[in-house]
Every structure is written in C-alpha cells, then in structure tokens.
C-alpha cells in the first residue's frame, strides 16, 4: 500500500507536491527537488507533458523517484497514448513498484509546443481509470489474461471546482469514482467555497479530496492565470495583496526600471504568495474542506517546504 493511500485512509491531512520532468535528459534538478521534499510530502506527482509541452516522460522520472526511495504519483493522460500504450506503461509502473496513478484527459496538443502531434484520446480519464482496474483484475483491454500476479494501483483523478456549470464536473467526478478513483486532486483553487460540493460528494462515496494549491508568484501571473487558465479564478483581493507587497522594503524614490529593484519586487511578491498559499492550506484543513492538499509550485518546488512550515505542518 502506498504512503499516499495509507495517509489518506488513516485520516491524516495528506500532502502531495507536483513537478515536471525536464525538457531534456538531465534529471538532476528534479532529483534535488525530491531531496528537498523528502519527509515533507506523502508523494510527488510527475506531470505527463503538462500543458502539452514535450518533456521527458512522467514514467521515467517516476521510476527515478521511486528508486531514490521517494513515492511518485504517475500522471497519465489520454492525449498521446492508445489504450495499449497506457496499459503497457501501467505494467511498467507496477513492475517498478509505482502504485499511485492520476488519470487525466490531458491538454490538447494544439495548445502546446508540438502542435502537429496527433491527439490520441483513445481513452478519456474515466477509461484510463478502467484500464488500470482491468489490469488489477488480471486482464488487458483485449480481455486477455495477464501472466503472473496482477498489479495493484491506488487510483486518482482530477476535478475542477471552479467551473460553470459545476454540476457537470460533479457528474463526471461520480463517473470517475464508479470507474475506480479513490482520491481526487483539484485544479488550483484560491477560495474555499467551491470546494464544498466536491467534498460532500467525496465524503458520500468514501473517496478523498486533495485541494489543488498553486502558489502565486506575482500579481501579473495571478491576473494572467485568472483570465486565461481554465478552472483558475484568483479573487481580486488576492491580486491586490500581491501588488501591495510588491514594494516592501524598497527605499523611497526607487527606480522602477532598476534590475535589482525589479528582482526585489518579484521576491516580495513570491514571498507574499507563499504566505497566502500557507494561509489557504491552513484554512482548507481547518474548515475540513479537503482530506489533503496537492501543491503545484510550477518550477518553484523549493517553496513547498516553506509553505508547509508556515501552514503549521
């Protein structure tokens, strides 16, 4: 049984952090991040060509993380692989002792950096979960029996709480539960309220909900994400708060074009973002609006321990 499953099932507020493989073959940065997260998170999600941007695969880094004695969550999208390829990768994962799987639809190739790539989508996220369950039951997508002991997986999926109409997300969440999902990681959320109906559904069916937290780095990033990224809504007061923190500690009459000033402004906002993420994390836990949290630091994974510490973990 994976640490993640143990933590969630024991009632511990479980933490996962997310990272992306490199666009290249040097995994040293990712592995140094893993060291920083060791002992602080239950598991590390590894993204599967996130935003349709080609990188090393999720499975490769998951194996390396597993071999380093940490626990990965293999993200698997339907964008690039047929049902055969998905089940083959799942078998590899099990052979290397990887149990946690997060099934996702996957961003469309045209939004990424290899836009001519064929959109596969042989299986949707529900189908990917079923594909893992088929293997657990000892057979493949063609109904053929597997040789030897069947694998075991701890299956997860995602939900987008900030969505209109939200009922559509809840209906799909239920389908994912029926298909075998035991835990859910949400898209990044910045308000507690939208979590409620998802938490109710999770509690009703005995599955676990982990609130997605994307620490904000700057007011500009917050505004951009809120306007452009599906499922993300950053309330204006949070953007204002980042803006207000921007000039902390700068002398009067500073030159806004100065390189060091700009650096300090970025740092100020990033630090405020860490505080805000920690506050939100604590709020979610305090209000019982999730069974855990999934922190997506998007390249600033070194901030994850700081967030956890500030949130009192």
């Amino acid at each position: 049984m994976s640490n993640l499953q143990k933590a969630l099932e024991s009632g511990k507020f479980a933490i996962t952090a997310e990272m992306a493989p490199p666009k290249g073959v040097d995994f040293s940065h990712q592995m140094s991040v893993v060291e920083q997260l060791r002992g602080k998170v239950e598991a590390c999600n590894v993204t599967d060509y996130q935003s349709s941007s080609l990188k090393a695969s999720s499975l490769g880094l998951c194996i390396m993380i597993k071999q380093a004695g940490m626990e990965p969550v293999l993200q698997m999208t339907g964008r690039d692989r047929s049902r055969m390829a998905i089940q083959g990768d799942f078998m590899d994962a099990a052979a290397f002792g990887i149990e946690n799987i997060l099934a996702l639809t996957g961003d469309h190739p045209t939004v990424g950096d290899c836009p001519e790539s064929k959109p596969v989508y042989d299986l949707d996220s529900v189908g990917i979960l079923r594909a893992a369950v088929q293997l657990m039951e000892g057979h493949d997508c063609g109904g053929n029996e597997l040789v030897g002991n069947p694998p075991y997986y701890y299956l997860g999926a995602s939900v987008t709480p900030v969505y209109e109409p939200v009922e559509l997300q809840l209906i799909k969440m239920k389908k994912k539960i029926d298909a075998g999902a035991k835990f859910f990681q949400t898209q990044g959320v910045y308000e507690a309220e939208p979590m409620k109906p998802f938490m109710e559904l999770a509690e009703k069916y005995g599955v676990y909900l982990m609130a997605g937290i994307i620490p904000l780095k700057t007011a500009a990033m917050a505004k951009y994400m809120s306007n452009n990224v599906p499922g993300i809504r950053v309330p204006q007061d949070q953007i204002d708060r980042l803006n207000a923190a921007k000039n902390n500690g700068l002398p009067e009459g500073f030159d806004p074009k100065d390189k060091d000033v700009k650096k300090k402004q970025s740092k100020n906002q990033e630090e405020e973002g860490i505080v805000m993420a920690a506050e939100f994390l604590a709020e979610i836990k305090e209000k019982g609006l999730a069974h855990g949290a999934h922190i997506m630091a998007i390249g600033a994974e070194e901030n994850v321990p700081k967030i956890l510490e500030k949130a009192g973990f």
């Binding site: 639809t105 987008t160 389908k175």
Partner: peptide, 19 residues
C-alpha cells in the same frame, strides 16, 4: 476536440474550448 465520451475535461473557460 478530444472526442470525450463521459463529459467535459477541465479545459473550458467561459464555456469555450481550450483549443
């Protein structure tokens, strides 16, 4: 755009497709 059979992905923004 993804020919999904069980409902939407999370990619819609303001009711429009991510593509």
């Amino acid at each position: 755009a993804k020919s999904l059979v069980n409902g939407p992905c999370g990619g819609a923004k303001n009711g429009k497709c991510e593509t």
